[in-house]
């Protein structure tokens, strides 16, 4: 471990593990199991989405024309690119390239912020047109059930947005730890874990985008 010059802070295997390998694979297993619960957390919302798509298909068609597919596509590209930079960040941590890790993490964070900026403009437009959850809805539409669509839209994209926000926080934390030189080929567990989380956030958007913006 000492041959890595970049490694300024050495990681010590926690007392209850026998080896670093056991520690790493346990963390990874824990993270996957956590993602399983995330999947069902969002999954339930998708169930609700499909139930009302089944009950009110015409309303969904009308509603999705109120969303800008261009903005959605732009955000999809932001998130996919950020997944790519994240995975490159993990790779650079694996190969002891501290500087590259920093740059990739920064790029990921920047893309995540861009995502939120686009989201902000989308939300602002919805607020302007009154296309809001039922208690605040004052928009115009053919179908009386339209508020349900926007209730779901704000809950699902809102929760996803909160996950993006948490992701930005986690990446900032990684950048701090990276600047202290904590990560190297022997220890990069946190980068890998945040990476998994970040890809999952991307994964949710991969389904949100076509369902809300394209098909309706």
């Amino acid at each position: 471990m000492s041959k890595q010059k970049e490694s300024l802070v050495q990681h010590h295997v926690a007392h209850h593990f026998d080896t670093a390998e056991q520690e790493f694979s346990t963390a990874k297993l824990g993270m996957w199991v956590f993602l399983v619960q995330e999947l069902l957390f969002f999954g339930a919302l998708f169930v609700a989405f499909f139930v009302f798509k089944y009950l009110y298909p015409e309303m969904y068609v009308e509603a999705h024309h109120h969303l800008s597919w261009k903005m959605g596509a732009l955000n999809t590209i932001f998130l996919i690119t950020s997944s790519f930079t994240m995975v490159m960040g993990v790779r650079s941590a694996q190969t002891n390239q501290r500087r590259a890790t920093k740059n990739y993490l920064f790029a990921t964070m920047l893309l995540a912020c861009s995502f939120l900026v686009v989201k902000y403009f989308e939300y602002a437009a919805k607020f302007h047109h009154g296309l809001l959850p039922p208690h605040f809805f004052f928009g115009e539409g053919v179908h009386q059930t339209l508020p349900i669509f926007f209730g779901l839209y704000f809950v699902m994209t809102g929760l996803h947005g909160i996950h993006v926000l948490i992701g930005i926080g986690l990446i900032a934390w990684l950048m701090y730890r990276n600047s202290r030189g904590e990560f190297n080929s022997e220890f990069y567990t946190p980068v890998e874990m945040v990476g998994l989380y970040w890809h999952f956030v991307d994964l949710v958007w991969i389904f949100l985008f076509p369902l809300f913006y394209l098909v309706g």
Partner: peptide
């Protein structure tokens, strides 16, 4: 449990901003 979490969250949101479902 995550499904309970989301259900209760939807209930809270229903009471505050309305979700409609």
């Amino acid at each position: 449990t995550p499904v309970l979490a989301i259900t209760l969250l939807l209930l809270i949101l229903e009471r505050t901003i309305g979700v409609g479902i």
